[in-house]
């Protein structure tokens, strides 16, 4: 007969993946709750990690709670794998969990990201962790968090449309550049973290699990696979992603993927693929998986995005604003 001491793991001074067992257990329970109630913000005890709040501590804690020795981890910062924030996080996760790291979105089993969802369609066995600075989508129109929670409880989201109204009136088009509010599973309004509008539709009926976590605000929420995620829109002004038609990556000539605009002297611009690993693959002519937007810029779920008009201006909003 074996003793308890033989069955248990031997005592370790350092916990696997940095967080102690209790912290991980709490996080995993909260993650399960978040998955059970899509879009609902679950409070959790955000632990100290060796990094300042606001630098991805929320995403990091979720990643550390999920990571196992067989995982392959990718970390994205604004589409880039090599920025300081991404490199630091990736090195930390690798050191603490002893996992393989990669920059290839299709190789990774666990992707922690800030501001972007990869261009290639993620598979059901992959998990995307998004870092969230402001988890409360109503914070722009309802300054009191207590009242905002009441509004969530009552599914009373009229005020969110006020934000879109303001955008349309002030800037004549939808300038909500990032963090566009979405309704998850027809129930909870959710801030999808500051991903560009371009990435927002990627959450709709996605095959992968998306977890969103705000370390400073101590809230985490989830979009389970195959969940409806619809951006808020007026009945006469449809939601539209960034209009980057005609923009081509300076290095590879790729079009209709999300670009970063680099201003040049003399008012010219150069464009660069925001997803740096997609750019690498395109430049080396490596095999690229199926993408959310095809080479003509058509979204992979037919009919989900409204048909774009031929010309860039005047936008629909401008017409209905009238001249007064």
């Amino acid at each position: 007969m074996s003793t308890l001491a033989e069955l248990a793991f031997s005592r370790q001074d350092y916990a696997y993946a940095f967080l102690d067992a209790f912290a991980k257990r709490e996080l995993r329970r909260k993650i399960l709750k978040a998955i059970a109630i899509p879009g609902y913000q679950v409070p959790y005890a955000s632990r100290e990690v060796p990094m300042a709040r606001g630098w991805g501590t929320g995403g990091l804690q979720v990643t550390l709670a999920l990571v196992g020795p067989k995982d392959t981890v990718k970390v994205i910062d604004q589409g880039d794998d090599d920025s300081v924030n991404a490199a630091n996080l990736r090195r930390f996760i690798a050191r603490m969990a002893g996992v393989k790291t990669t920059t290839d979105a299709l190789e990774a089993s666990l992707i922690q990201s800030r501001h972007r969802i990869p261009e290639e369609i993620l598979r059901p066995d992959q998990i995307l962790v998004l870092q969230v600075p402001v988890p409360e989508p109503l914070s722009w129109v309802e300054p009191s968090y207590t009242r905002a929670r009441e509004l969530h409880a009552d599914a009373e989201y009229g005020l969110a449309w006020l934000g879109i109204y303001e955008d349309l009136v002030r800037y004549r088009s939808n300038t909500h550049g990032a963090d566009y509010p979405v309704l998850v599973n027809g129930r909870y309004l959710m801030a999808p973290s500051p991903i560009p509008r371009w990435d927002t539709p990627k959450l709709h009926l996605a095959q992968h699990l998306t977890l969103l976590s705000a370390g400073r605000e101590k809230r985490l929420y989830a979009v389970p696979p195959h969940t409806e995620v619809r951006p808020l829109e007026f009945s006469d002004v449809p939601f539209a992603v960034e209009d980057q038609r005609g923009w081509a990556d300076a290095q590879t000539g790729v079009q209709n993927k999300f670009m970063t605009e680099i201003p040049l002297e003399g008012g010219q611009s150069r464009y660069q693929l925001s997803d740096s690993d997609y750019a690498r693959k395109a430049a080396l002519r490596l095999e690229i998986g199926a993408t959310y937007y095809d080479d003509q810029g058509t979204f992979y779920i037919p009919g989900f995005l409204a048909e774009r008009k031929a010309s860039v201006a005047p936008s629909h909003a401008e017409q209905s604003l009238g001249t007064d």
Binding site: L159, L162, Y165, E166, V169, F234, D236, A317, L321, G322
Partner: peptide, 23 residues
Amino acid sequence: HTSSGNVAERLILAGERSFGSLR
């Protein structure tokens, strides 16, 4: 917020979802 947005808020809360009608 804009003045018109202040007025529109009440209509939005009552369920109006057309930008043109709100204006």
